[in-house]
């Protein structure tokens, strides 16, 4: 048992636990903080934690892009807008439906618990395959209850993961997949540009200045 525990608590798993916990706690703080600037800063921390989770999944390029685009550019924009609007802590609006809050929190926790149990029961092993030495891997697998190993054949999955292409997660691999017209990703990627166009039109037409006709 101690051997399997040692196998379980390898460095990537420890890193995962630390940053997953960080991601969850910063996300919760981001929602709960009444001050919008602090809320935005918690969001930055959250995006960093998620970027490191991407790194642990071998998605190097995605992690870097996450930091540069989201934690960098987008968050600077968020902070600019908050400062520009000079938002303080919002005044408390009298809550018409007080019973709603505890019910919502309870239902949210219930949903989160159900999703966690579902995913945890379906994922073959928490330990990343490549990080474990052969013996430790076997032990972790053998330590699992027979019920779980019935639905998932772990060794087959771990072998498959070892056969993963070298380019996975690199800009080369992503580009080869994303921009290949024979693969299913190019079309939605192009269609997203319509989505962005619609969003731009929306922000201009909802927040833009009044047209001369409107003033008349």
């Amino acid at each position: 048992m101690p051997e399997s525990l040692a196998g379980f608590l390898s460095i990537p798993v420890l890193l995962f636990l630390i940053f997953a916990l960080g991601a969850v706690s910063t996300a919760v703080s981001c929602v709960l903080t009444p001050n919008p600037v602090r809320s935005a800063l918690f969001l930055v921390l959250n995006l960093f934690c998620v970027a490191i989770l991407y790194l642990l999944l071998n998605a190097y390029f995605l992690a870097v892009v996450q930091v540069i685009v989201y934690a960098g550019a987008i968050m600077v924009l968020f902070l600019f807008v908050i400062m520009l609007l000079n938002l303080g802590s919002p005044e408390r609006i009298p809550d018409q439906m007080k019973w709603q809050q505890p019910v919502a929190v309870g239902a949210g926790i219930l949903l989160a618990a159900m999703l966690t149990v579902t995913i945890a029961s379906s994922v073959p092993s928490f330990a990343p395959a490549t990080s474990l030495p052969q013996t430790a891997r076997r032990t972790t697998l053998d330590a699992r209850e027979p019920g779980a190993s019935q639905t998932m054949d772990n060794s087959a999955i771990l072998d498959d993961i070892a056969r993963r292409p070298e380019t996975m997660g690199t800009p080369y691999g992503i580009g080869k997949n994303l921009y290949n017209p024979d693969k299913p990703w190019l079309f939605p990627f192009e269609m997203v540009s319509f989505l962005l166009l619609v969003a731009v039109i929306g922000s201009v037409s909802l927040a833009g200045r009044q047209t001369s006709e409107e003033k008349a």
């Binding site: 939605p188 269609m191 929306g202 037409s205 909802l206």
Partner: peptide, 30 residues
């Protein structure tokens, strides 16, 4: 696009184009 999609990712992109346009149209009389 949602009607012609054969993949959930395309359904999603179509759904978002539809939804975002509708959000804006709902608030069009600003």
């Amino acid at each position: 696009l949602m009607a012609l999609a054969n993949d959930l990712i395309n359904v999603f992109v179509g759904l978002e184009i539809l939804s975002v346009s509708l959000y804006i149209l709902c608030g069009f009389s600003r």
